[in-house]
Computed example of a mutant assay.
Amino acid sequence: MRTSFISFPTSAGLNVAGLLRTPRDAGDPVGAVLICHGSDGVDGRGEYYAGALNAAGFATLEIDMWAARSTSRGAAGRPRSPMETLPDAFGALKFLGEQPEIDPARVGILGFSWGGVVSLLSATKGRADPLRGDLAGFAAHVAHYPVCYAYAADPRMALTDLTGAPILIQTGDIDTYDHPDAGEKLAAALAAQGTAPVRNITYAGAGHGFDRDLPAQTINDPFAHNGAGGPVLMEFNKPAAEAARAEVVAFFTAAF
């Protein structure tokens, strides 16, 4: 793979940096996956998936949404809403579509927690259409543990009028942001709209950030525990992480 450090402008007037990996001598343009980090910033989760996606023949772009805003890592320093970072995702989509190695019709998005919310929000026409310009939009969406209760609780976050691109939601049943069946219920509600194929996989014994291969960490987030706030344990679960990574590669392979 060819590795490049890049930056691109967004419609919000920011310059967002990222790490782009493209196949060497790929021949025909390839599909690509945009990777969006969680509240802790770029922390290795993107790398964990990028390697597998690159090995499957996809380009990847992992962006740093926090550096563009000079914010600190963690819940205390992030923007007020993931909607503020939607221009980052669509700026990245435009950038990827301009690269000669990449097929602009085959660009997907993968996000963790905060980035997972961005991935789901970008799957709605009302949010995508003003930002995508002449682009086709994202061709597929993956959201890992994307705070599943929030979309029904806050009308501003409602996931209605989906673009039709396929969606994969992967969650853990001991994630203390949500109830154990929250991912299943969210996927069912989205699928019931009848406009996009939606699938959920919930991993037993896995919590928030189950694919974060770092020492266990407890954070406090006002959005945890179904909005009541409180502690969240982030702990690596190797079997769940490996299964989720394989599902991501299979999902984008099928979608593209």
Score class of each variant (00 low, 15 high):
10 T>C: 01
10 T>E: 04
12 A>K: 03
12 A>E: 11
12 A>T: 05
12 A>Q: 09
14 L>D: 05
15 N>A: 07
17 A>N: 11
17 A>D: 11
21 R>G: 12
22 T>P: 01
22 T>K: 05
23 P>H: 06
24 R>N: 10
26 A>G: 08
31 G>E: 09
32 A>F: 09
32 A>W: 10
33 V>C: 08
36 C>S: 13
36 C>Q: 10
37 H>T: 04
38 G>V: 12
41 G>L: 02
41 G>N: 05
41 G>V: 00
42 V>L: 11
43 D>R: 14
44 G>Q: 11
44 G>S: 08
45 R>D: 08
45 R>P: 00
48 Y>R: 13
48 Y>N: 10
50 A>Q: 06
55 A>S: 15
57 G>D: 08
58 F>H: 09
59 A>R: 06
59 A>I: 01
62 E>H: 05
62 E>I: 03
64 D>A: 13
64 D>G: 03
66 W>C: 02
67 A>R: 07
67 A>V: 01
72 S>M: 00
73 R>Y: 06
75 A>P: 03
76 A>C: 02
77 G>V: 01
77 G>C: 02
79 P>T: 04
80 R>F: 01
81 S>E: 09
84 E>Q: 09
87 P>V: 06
90 F>Y: 14
92 A>D: 08
96 L>S: 05
101 E>C: 00
103 D>Y: 02
104 P>Q: 11
105 A>K: 12
108 G>E: 07
108 G>T: 07
108 G>K: 06
109 I>F: 01
110 L>A: 03
111 G>R: 09
112 F>Q: 08
114 W>V: 02
115 G>M: 07
115 G>V: 01
115 G>C: 05
115 G>L: 05
117 V>T: 04
121 L>I: 00
123 A>T: 03
123 A>Q: 08
125 K>A: 14
127 R>Q: 14
128 A>Y: 02
129 D>T: 10
129 D>W: 09
131 L>D: 05
135 L>K: 01
139 A>K: 11
139 A>C: 15
142 V>K: 08
148 C>E: 14
152 A>N: 13
153 A>Y: 04
155 P>R: 14
157 M>P: 07
161 D>S: 15
163 T>I: 11
163 T>D: 13
163 T>W: 10
165 A>V: 09
165 A>Y: 15
166 P>K: 15
167 I>Q: 14
169 I>Q: 12
170 Q>N: 13
175 D>L: 09
175 D>T: 11
176 T>Q: 14
176 T>L: 11
178 D>M: 09
178 D>L: 13
179 H>F: 13
180 P>G: 15
183 G>D: 11
183 G>W: 12
184 E>M: 08
184 E>I: 13
184 E>K: 14
186 L>Y: 06
188 A>F: 12
189 A>E: 13
190 L>W: 10
190 L>M: 09
191 A>C: 03
193 Q>I: 04
197 P>T: 14
197 P>R: 14
202 T>F: 04
203 Y>S: 01
203 Y>C: 01
203 Y>E: 00
207 G>L: 08
207 G>R: 08
209 G>C: 05
209 G>F: 03
210 F>L: 03
211 D>K: 00
215 P>A: 10
216 A>S: 15
221 D>I: 00
222 P>V: 00
229 G>C: 05
229 G>I: 01
232 V>A: 07
232 V>H: 10
235 E>S: 13
242 E>C: 08
243 A>K: 13
250 A>L: 13
253 T>K: 15
255 A>V: 03
256 F>S: 15
